[in-house]
Simulated scan of single mutants.
Amino acid sequence: MVPIAKAAASPPIAVICGSMRFYSRMLQVAADLTLAGQIVVMPHCVVAEQDQNGTTKGMLDLLHRRKIDLADYVVVVTDEKGYIGTSTANEIAYATALGKAVEYRAVGDQGPQ
């Protein structure tokens, strides 16, 4: 395997947080940040409403906190009304406690989520 030369400055790492009902909006923001030369991590699994208190949801929440640990800053994706659910609010509090910068992106309606 050929080693990859490290750039003089590593690109910033952004983690996207938000309700999975805004997943298509998250993808739009991820694409914008990637095209701006940033590394982007975000959630990729949707947990069914009836399983919100199950072990899978807990494991995914913990995994997302590790993504927050890795990131330089957090981007919260929401709708034009500014909706933030309980899980997202917890992620914001966690990131803030770590001293991470938190940005908010209200992305207009992109059709069915």
Rank of each mutant, 00 (worst) to 15 (best):
L63W: 05
I13F: 04
T34N: 14
V107L: 04
A101F: 03
F22A: 01
G85S: 10
L63F: 07
K6V: 13
A97L: 13
G85W: 05
A30Q: 04
H44Y: 10
K67R: 14
I39M: 03
T86E: 11
Y94W: 13
T96Q: 12
S10H: 12
A5Y: 12
Q28C: 08
G18L: 03
V46C: 15
D32L: 12
M26C: 06
L63D: 07
E91Q: 14
M26K: 01
S24N: 14
M59N: 15
A97V: 05
D32V: 09
V47K: 04
C45G: 03
F22E: 02
I13P: 01
L33S: 00
C17E: 10
D51I: 08
K6P: 06
S19H: 01
R21D: 09
S19R: 02
L35W: 06
A9T: 12
D51A: 13
E103L: 14
D72G: 14
V74D: 05
V75N: 02
Y94P: 07
A97K: 14
L27Q: 15
Q28N: 07
R25S: 11
A71Q: 00
Q38S: 11
A89F: 05
Y94D: 08
L33K: 06
T88C: 12
T86A: 13
G58N: 07
K81A: 09
Q50V: 06
Y94S: 06
A101Y: 05
T86P: 08
Q52L: 13
Q110P: 00
T96V: 12
A7M: 06
P12E: 09
A101Q: 13
N53W: 02
A89I: 01
M59W: 15
M20H: 07
P43S: 15
D109H: 10
I16W: 03
A14H: 03
A9E: 14
L63K: 06
P112E: 11
D32S: 15
P11Y: 04
P11K: 09
Y104S: 01
A8T: 09
V46Q: 14
T56W: 06
D72L: 04
E49T: 07
Q28R: 06
Q110K: 04
A14S: 02
D72W: 06
G18M: 07
P112G: 07
Q52Y: 10
A5T: 10
V74F: 01
G85M: 05
L98F: 03
Y73V: 11
D69G: 15
D61S: 15
A95G: 08
R66C: 02
L62W: 03
R66N: 00
K57P: 00
R21S: 14
Y94M: 09
R25V: 05
V102E: 00
K57G: 03
A8E: 12
H64T: 04
L27F: 05
P3H: 11
V107F: 01
Y94Q: 07
N53C: 05
P3I: 12
T56A: 11
R66T: 02
G111I: 04
L35F: 10
A106T: 09
A97D: 12
L60C: 09
N53K: 04
A7D: 08
A93D: 12
A9R: 14
V77L: 01
S10A: 15
I13Q: 00
Q52K: 12
G82R: 12
M20E: 03
V46M: 15
D72T: 14
Y104L: 13
A8R: 05
I4C: 10
E103W: 06
D72Y: 06
Q38G: 07
T88E: 13
A14V: 03
